[in-house]
Every structure is written in C-alpha cells, then in structure tokens.
C-alpha cells in the first residue's frame, strides 16, 4: 500500500511540476509579445506614457529582465505565496481572488453531477446487461449520448426547457434581484438555476458509464468464476453481485481517466448557461486577452483534477484489497 501511494504521489508531483513549467514556459516562448498584445486590448490607460508604465510594470511582474533560471524560481516563489498576478479584465482584482469566487460554483456543479452520473450509470448498465429488451433500447441511446458534445446538449436543454417551456432560467447562478444569503428563497433560486447545467452534464456522463458497466458485466459473467458458481448451483443474484463488485473496479479507474473530459464539458456547459464558474471566467478571459487569468484558470483546473485523482486513488485502496496487500492489481 505504501509503494502504491508513493508511486501515485510521485506521478502527481511530477505532473504538477510539469504543469507549472508549461504555465511558465508558454507565455515566454510563444511568438509575439504577450504584454503588448494584452495592453493593446485593455482600456485601462489611454495615453502613451501610462501604457509605457503599465508595460514596465508587467515586464517587472513577469521579471523579464532577469536571467531565465531566476525567472523560473521567482515564478515558483510567487506561486507558493498565492500570487498569480492581477487580472486585467477585472482590474485591479488579483487573479487568485477572482478564481476563489468562481470555484464554489464549479464544485457545486461538478461534484454532484460526476458522482450521481457515475452511480446511476453503473447501476443502469448492470441492469441493462441483464435484460435483452432494455439493452436494445439503452445501448444505442447511451452511444448517442456519449457522442453528443456537451455544449450542444446544454444548448438544447436551455432552449427547450428555458425558452420554449419557460420552466427554468437559462443564465446566471441566481436571479439578479437577489443577494447571496442563506434564506430559503435564495437557496431555491440557486437550485432552480443549477438544475439545467447539472442535468446536461449528468445525462451525457450517464451514457458513458452505462455502456462501460454493461460491457464489463457481460465480460465478468463469461469469466471462469461465474461459470464455476453457476455449475455449483449458486443463486443468480449472488453471481451478479460478484460480477458487479469486480466490474466496478475498472469503472473507478475509468472515472479518473475521464475527469479531464468531464471538466472540459463543465467548462463549455458553464459558457452556455452563463454559470459563473471557471469556464465562464475563461471565456471572458480569452475574449479580453487576460493572460494572467487564463494561466490561473489553467493551474486551478490541473490542481482540481490532480486532487480528484488522488481522492480516487484513496477510494481505490478502500475498495480493492489487492492494493492494500502490496499487490498492485490495476496497473499503477
């Protein structure tokens, strides 16, 4: 178990290291002058001397006059102090503050949709593997769902339930007339706005898990141990349960592998519903050429995915006894 964890932590540390390096490298070695591009788009200052001052300020912030290794070390130092620069689009708010405001909405949207879709998809897939009629209906539907681009389903849901039927609001996390408080009106309003983006993420992920589980269960039921149990005359329910327990392990690994895709899906869903999470911020940052904010979003997304991966690894230790005994079952 210790070996398994050390290995994982080593990989995550290396990944984080690589990600930060990319984050540092790209602005410096891309063609063009990012600071000039950025200032050209910002209307903070209008006269030439002010622009020159801004330029010097950012050049110093980037530390472009220092040797490269010094710049790199300073970048890490600033990072550990939580200094990600200042947003030009929401000038003069520090990037870290902007991100801190957005992250709760992401968590509120992502965690329930990921967990519920995973749970429901697995159970549905297991049931589908059991009945031919359900299988013939669920399987094609699930394939269509996994092929659907996230934003398109979001657009369709927003259009149909928001505009045609008028049941749900299609923009924002809460009504403009309300202030965030812990009152029932506000919480209900929050949930009302949350439902469509949540549903859109849930539905697409659901399809993928259902297919995976269905295929796994069929595979497990063909395995030697299942046949042996059948030969012994064990009840079908018991065999199904063993099959399910074995099939759930690859699905947990699958969750870790798919996280990146799901997060990307959440980003575009937030854009569709103007939901004030990182995805929505990112669109604004891109449209306003706010490089610090873009880089901050990048780091937060990677950090979030790494933490989620680590949590999944911990869950895996609980679920799969082989990892505890030092026999790394699933490939590490």
């Amino acid at each position: 178990m210790r070996r398994y964890l050390t290995r994982k932590i080593l990989i995550y540390t290396l990944t984080f290291f690589l990600a930060v390096t990319i984050d540092w490298l790209i602005p410096r070695f891309m063609p063009g002058d990012p600071i000039r591009n950025m200032l050209a788009r910002v209307s903070v200052a209008s006269n030439a001397s002010a622009i020159q001052m801004m330029y010097d300020y950012y050049a110093r912030l980037f530390g472009l006059d220092l040797p490269l290794w010094q710049q790199y070390l300073n970048f890490w130092k600033a990072l550990f102090q939580g200094n990600l620069g200042i947003s030009t689009y929401l000038f003069p708010t520090p990037v870290i503050e902007v991100l801190k405001r957005a992250v709760p909405y992401d968590a509120f949207l992502l965690i329930p949709s990921i967990l519920l879709a995973w749970y429901a998809g697995n159970n549905f897939g297991a049931i589908a593997a059991r009945s031919k009629r359900l299988d013939n209906f669920i399987l094609p539907l699930s394939y269509v769902l996994t092929a659907t681009p996230y934003m398109w389903l979001g657009i369709l849901l927003a259009w149909f339930f928001g505009i045609v039927l008028g049941l749900f609001p299609i923009a924002g996390a809460y009504s403009f007339s309300l202030r965030p408080t812990w009152s029932w009106t506000f919480v209900l309003d929050l949930l009302h706005h949350w439902f469509l983006p949540f549903a859109s993420l849930f539905i697409i992920d659901f399809g993928g898990w259902a297919i995976g589980m269905r295929n796994m269960i069929i595979y497990e039921l063909e395995a030697e141990y299942s046949r042996y149990l059948t030969a012994l005359g064990a009840p079908q329910r018991l065999i199904r349960r063993y099959a399910f327990n074995n099939a759930i392990l690859p699905q947990i690994t699958g969750l870790a592998l798919r996280l990146g895709v799901i997060v990307a899906g959440a980003l575009v869903t937030e854009v569709v519903f103007s939901y004030p999470g990182i995805g929505y911020l990112l669109l604004a940052a891109i449209q306003n050429q706010d490089y610090f904010l873009i880089q901050g979003c990048f780091l937060f997304i990677i950090l979030g995915v790494l933490i989620a991966n680590f949590v999944i690894d911990l869950v895996y230790i609980v679920v799969d006894p082989r990892t505890r005994r030092g026999m790394v079952g699933e490939s590490a």
Partner: peptide
C-alpha cells in the same frame, strides 16, 4: 503524467497565446 493533465487545459493555454 500526460494522461493525468486535462488535455483541454493545455490546449487552451497554447491556443490563447497564439
């Protein structure tokens, strides 16, 4: 390592600077 990094995150930071 590359498997853990969300592809889109890397793509967007490259694309944003071009």
């Amino acid at each position: 390592i590359v498997l853990v990094i969300p592809t889109l995150a890397v793509l967007l930071i490259i694309a944003a600077y071009l």
